[in-house]
Simulated assay, not measured.
Amino acid sequence: MISIAIANQKGGVGKTTTAINLATALAAIGRNVLLIDLDPQGNASTGLGVSPSERIHSSYDLLVNDVAAETAALETKVPRLDLIPATVDLSGAEVEMVDLEDRAHRLVNALNGARAGRWDICLIDCPPSLGLLTVNALVAAKHLIVPLQTEFFALEGLSQLLKTVERVSASANPDLSILGIALTMYDRRNKLSQHVADDVRACLGDKVLDTVVPRNVRVSEAPSHGLPALVYDMKCPGSAAYLKLAREVIGRLPNLAPAEAA
């Protein structure tokens, strides 16, 4: 199983929207996908239509109570997409894990215990912070995707995230690499979006994914219906972008043969 963290400590950049729709797109093109909601707000869980009453086990249990990933995982409305939801308990997990000797390795230990072949890809939706929850995700992940909003201050804080990635890579997870920067909320009517996209590509080069996700009303509406945009309106520009992004992500994964990525 290939684990990918989706992280950016800035809020409102389309991180959870990217996690939900990328997971759905990967499932739609034939991958068995696990999405872990590691954000105490639980927006990924809500956005996939999983109510609080259905969250018998959660990512909190995975980290604190040693519950197995396969026990905590729920089937979603999307075929081949499972979810480990978040509950409000997760907000206290960082405090509870502080005194644990393996506090940064709780998530990777849980995922290593999953049955081989159960899932092809695991996406981890991180909270908008660089605390212990995000560190657990980075230790557990092979790759990192950073959603970046194409608006003013887009690069603000990115250097801090990259430094955290370097520290985690040096101390706990030497295999961690940046799979790509995903430009989100792109507004073709706004010249600023184009300027920001150009600046990001000038600074980060080929680390920036080619696919740009546009600002799209249908994508924004979808979570209120408990559906990914790809299910809510598969033909909208946002859904088309996430399908394209999924294919690009698979194409960048070195562990998959070119024939599989087609």
Score class of each variant (00 low, 15 high):
165 V>N: 04
162 L>N: 00
163 K>P: 12
148 L>A: 09
123 L>K: 12
157 G>D: 11
127 P>F: 07
93 A>N: 06
138 L>I: 10
124 I>K: 13
161 L>S: 07
85 P>L: 02
116 A>K: 15
106 R>I: 03
99 D>L: 12
117 G>T: 08
112 N>C: 05
101 E>M: 15
139 V>E: 08
90 L>Q: 05
120 D>T: 09
107 L>S: 02
133 L>T: 08
75 E>C: 05
163 K>R: 15
122 C>N: 11
79 P>D: 07
139 V>L: 03
142 K>T: 00
117 G>M: 05
90 L>P: 01
141 A>F: 00
153 F>Q: 03
147 P>N: 00
156 E>T: 11
147 P>G: 04
82 D>A: 12
118 R>Q: 11
145 I>N: 02
153 F>G: 00
97 M>Q: 11
101 E>I: 13
92 G>H: 04
128 P>C: 14
82 D>H: 14
147 P>W: 04
148 L>F: 02
163 K>G: 02
84 I>C: 05
122 C>K: 13
108 V>G: 06
111 L>N: 09
143 H>A: 10
143 H>Y: 10
92 G>I: 03
92 G>P: 02
117 G>N: 09
108 V>S: 12
165 V>S: 00
105 H>W: 02
125 D>E: 08
79 P>M: 01
124 I>C: 06
127 P>R: 11
150 T>C: 15
118 R>A: 10
137 A>F: 11
91 S>C: 14
148 L>E: 01
88 V>G: 08
128 P>F: 10
168 V>A: 05
122 C>P: 03
95 V>I: 15
